[in-house]
Simulated scan of single mutants.
Amino acid sequence: MPQFQLVKKTTYQPTAPEITDAEGAAMARAVVNLFRRWEITDGQASVLLGGLSARTWARWKVGEVGRIPRDLKSRLSNLMGIHKALRIIFTEADRSYSWVKKPNDVFGGSSALEIMLGGELTDVMRVRRYLDAVRCG
């Protein structure tokens, strides 16, 4: 008869570090500035931030960032990744900010903003993955 050995339960170890509340708040403040540079409307901001309410967005714009759920932290992280990649790819800041609204053959003639306004986290991630690939050669 085979012998079985009990395996001790281990605690879950995420492969990526958890985004802290302080990091989430910092990213939220940065996204407010980024969206200003991208010339994003309040309605577009709501979509890009996963349906963030107009009231919460208004609070963010005056620096009042409350608790940010994990999914929203992920959106913020991807938006910051897009910004970082653009700043690396383009040496001129204005080009990096305007790129988001320019038609792009990679996206079938749509702009990156149009892709991201699909509203899903995967839409934002699609743009980030593309830029990361360009940035890394």
Rank of each mutant, 00 (worst) to 15 (best):
Gln3Met: 02
Gln3His: 12
Phe4Met: 03
Gln5Ile: 03
Thr10Val: 06
Thr11Cys: 09
Tyr12Gly: 07
Pro14Arg: 13
Thr15Pro: 11
Thr15Asn: 14
Ala16Gln: 15
Ile19Gly: 12
Thr20Arg: 13
Ala22Asn: 11
Gly24Ser: 10
Ala25Cys: 08
Ala25Leu: 06
Arg29Gly: 08
Ala30Cys: 14
Phe35Pro: 08
Phe35Tyr: 14
Arg37Ser: 04
Ile40Gln: 09
Ile40Ala: 06
Thr41Trp: 05
Gly43Ile: 00
Leu49Val: 04
Gly50Phe: 00
Gly51Trp: 15
Gly51Asp: 13
Ala58Thr: 06
Arg59Lys: 08
Trp60Pro: 01
Val62Trp: 08
Glu64Ala: 12
Arg67Asp: 07
Arg70Pro: 11
Lys73Thr: 05
Arg75Ile: 03
Ser77Pro: 01
Asn78Phe: 08
Leu79Ser: 06
Ile82Asn: 04
His83Trp: 04
His83Cys: 02
His83Lys: 06
His83Thr: 09
Lys84Phe: 07
Arg87Asn: 11
Ile88His: 13
Ile89Tyr: 11
Ile89Ser: 10
Phe90Ala: 08
Glu92Val: 02
Ala93Glu: 12
Asp94Ala: 03
Asp94Ile: 04
Asp94Phe: 08
Ser96Val: 02
Ser96His: 13
Ser98His: 11
Trp99Met: 08
Val100Tyr: 14
Asp105Asn: 04
Phe107Val: 10
Gly108His: 06
Gly118Arg: 11
Gly119Ala: 04
Gly119Met: 03
Leu121Met: 05
Leu121Thr: 04
Thr122Arg: 15
Asp123Gly: 09
Arg126Trp: 01
Arg128Met: 12
Arg128His: 03
Arg129Ala: 08
Asp132Ser: 03
Ala133Ser: 15
Ala133Thr: 09
Ala133Met: 09
Cys136Ser: 10
